[in-house]
Amino acid sequence: MEPIRQHTGLVYPLNRANVDTDQIIPKQFLKRISRQGFGKFLFYNWRYDENEEPRKDFSLNNPKYQRATILVAGENFGCGSSREHAPWALQDFGFRIIIASSFADIFYNNCTKNGILPVKLTDQEAQQLIKNAEASDYELTVDLEAKKVYDREGFSADFDLAAYQREMLLNGWDDISVTLTHSDKIDQFEKTHVVY
């Protein structure tokens, strides 16, 4: 996967809590057998009406957000199903960073496996970013090395993530090749492990 160290981009604000993976990518698009091409189905039921025309009242349809790379949302983002199609759709649309005050566990993990950086800020900080982005075209910088989020107007916030996940994202490493370096330990383990 593509490494991520420092990223600056346009923020798309989605001021909703508990955005579930059924909203991020509805089930009719889970039938495909490749990883590519899910971006056009992102937030499908919010973006398109029953005639498949873009809904004017859904902000992501504003053409300027075609170049958005940072999404900021309310708490418990990505709850519900384990579908990795959700991060695939966000990534294919162009998002590299998701900011929220909390994330559902499986979604959070799925992001880090795909080179998307999930950033946990406080509720107050996330709400501030949503307000800023709703008010005007708003760019943020996310620095994974320094674990900082900042803008040009003086906003700055620290975030944390597990050292292991940070290392994987910074280097763009693939989990399986790391694990295979421990193959001998798995072999040893299997020799004595009891499973009925």
Binding site: S82, R83, E84, P87, I106, N109, N110, K113, N114, A162, Y164, D175, I176, T179, L180, S183, I186, E190
Partner: peptide
């Protein structure tokens, strides 16, 4: 028992393990 994403499915198929905190 817990749910995993597709990258982890591939990981378990290949290694019979997952990384977990």
């Amino acid at each position: 028992a817990f749910g995993i994403g597709t990258s982890e499915v591939e990981h378990v198929l290949a290694t019979q393990t997952v990384w977990q905190s």
